[in-house]
């Protein structure tokens, strides 16, 4: 005798059941995708928390991203900069051990870029920082994020919204940003 619950259910209940299972699968799939496979919130090689560094410990952004004021790129800190503090702070933790592995192997940490602009866009951090734009205006409240998430779309319309509102000099000319 075969055992099956399906004959015991009528058609409408079956439909509801399939719908509920489908919904649960969708929600789990969405969550997994968003947290582990999305390009807006990539999983980084080391679970570095901006919330602890920039939020709780109040380290200024430009202590680590030190080129933002003077260059087109903000700059990812060298492993040396991390080691500088972590020689003495929070040693022995699993994530810090990962950091020391990179240090001992003399390899850079393969961070995954979160805010990545396409090849045809010219963007200068210097111009924006010197123009008085806060880091959080584009990058969101990074000091509250454990793993950095890209909140802005980084599309042209999004850039232009600000350029229009602030009446940037030549800010709407194509060759100001396109190269």
């Amino acid at each position: 005798m075969s055992i099956s619950v399906l004959p015991a259910l009528d058609a409408s209940k079956k439909a509801v059941g399939i719908f509920v299972v489908g919904l649960i699968a969708f929600v789990i799939g969405y969550w997994v995708n968003r947290n582990y496979f999305s390009d807006a919130t990539p999983v980084q090689p080391i679970e570095f928390s901006h919330r602890i560094h920039a939020g709780e410990n109040q380290i200024p952004c430009m202590y680590c991203h030190l080129y933002a004021r003077s260059s087109r790129v903000a700059g990812v800190p060298s492993v040396h900069k991390c080691i500088n503090c972590h020689k003495v702070i929070a040693t022995g933790r699993a994530e810090i051990n990962k950091l020391f592995n990179y240090w001992n192997e003399k390899k850079p940490i393969p961070w995954i870029k979160v805010h990545d602009l396409p090849d045809f866009v010219y963007f200068s951090h210097k111009r924006h920082v010197r123009g008085g734009v806060q880091c959080q205006t584009c990058h969101g409240p990074v000091e509250e994020m454990n793993r950095v998430t890209r909140l802005a779309s980084l599309q042209m319309g999004w850039c232009l919204e600000c350029h229009r509102a602030k009446k940037v000099e030549n800010g709407r000319d194509c060759w100001t940003c396109h190269k």
Partner: peptide
């Protein structure tokens, strides 16, 4: 500093806009 153009677009001299931009910066 210069993008690589795709198939299907026109291109021409820009007076090296990347250098002008750099100097203006």
């Amino acid at each position: 500093d210069v993008t690589v153009r795709e198939k299907g677009v026109m291109e021409k001299c820009t007076f090296c806009i990347q250098r002008i931009r750099q100097a203006k910066d």
